[in-house]
Amino acid sequence: MKSKIDIAYEQYIHQERRTKRNVLFTQFLLFVLFVGVWELASTQNWINPLLFSSPSRISELFINKIGDGTLLVHIAATTGETLASFVIATIFGTACAAILWWAPFVSKVSDPYLVVLNAMPKVALGPILIVALGPGYISIIAMGVLISFVITTLVVYAAFHETDQNYIKVIETFGGDKKQVFQEVTLPAAIPTIISTLKVNVGLSWVGVIVGEFLVSKKGLGYMIIYGFQVFNFTLVLLSLFIIAILATFMYTGVGMLENRWRKR
């Protein structure tokens, strides 16, 4: 015989499942509705098809571009550049934060400069980068790094700085030196912060790389956008936008999974 608690529990589980199903269904419905209305509005000329294109034209172009292999080249270029700038910015930013933590004098001296660097719109440095590093993927990666490393440094340094003094004291009472304090306490205590800056950096790296591609490149999704804009092919622009959105979501989810894995430990 089932107890009343068991029955109530089953009802609860049932209710939870139903809510989840409803949410998923509504999400799917919204998507279908959006695509449907867009297609209809475009074919009926309610919106300018030249400017807003239509889902069918975008998917047609997508299949074409996949077929002739050009799209994959663009995707590979942009993804590679983004990943490179993301990884470099995170490592470089964390390393700078470590130096600031290690040498309080350096941190005090560099404080106003970091504030200025952080406040400055890094995109404005684009032209200088291109002249200095040449019109190629190096400039684009540099753009991506530049845009996210200053904020990484500041946030990670703050996390290093705010480590609970008592944990540091534990290591010191055992006779540990500064290097051991960093290895055993400061760095591991800051890992959650570092992971959350990764999330910010994913977005910023994309901004940097796309802007970089706007300025110089001969391939990549940013190039596709600027090319589509120049020849007034907005189907191409929209296709690039969709692919960027999907790739960025993948990267963001990846970082999220990393975060979960760390939390479980």
Binding site: D164, N166, K169, V170, E172, T173, F174, G175, V185, P188
Partner: peptide, 16 residues
């Protein structure tokens, strides 16, 4: 400097 042969216990455990 911090002596190897001293053990210190805090108000809280401060286990990592």
């Amino acid at each position: 400097k911090a002596h190897n042969q001293i053990g210190y216990m805090f108000q809280q455990d401060y286990l990592f």
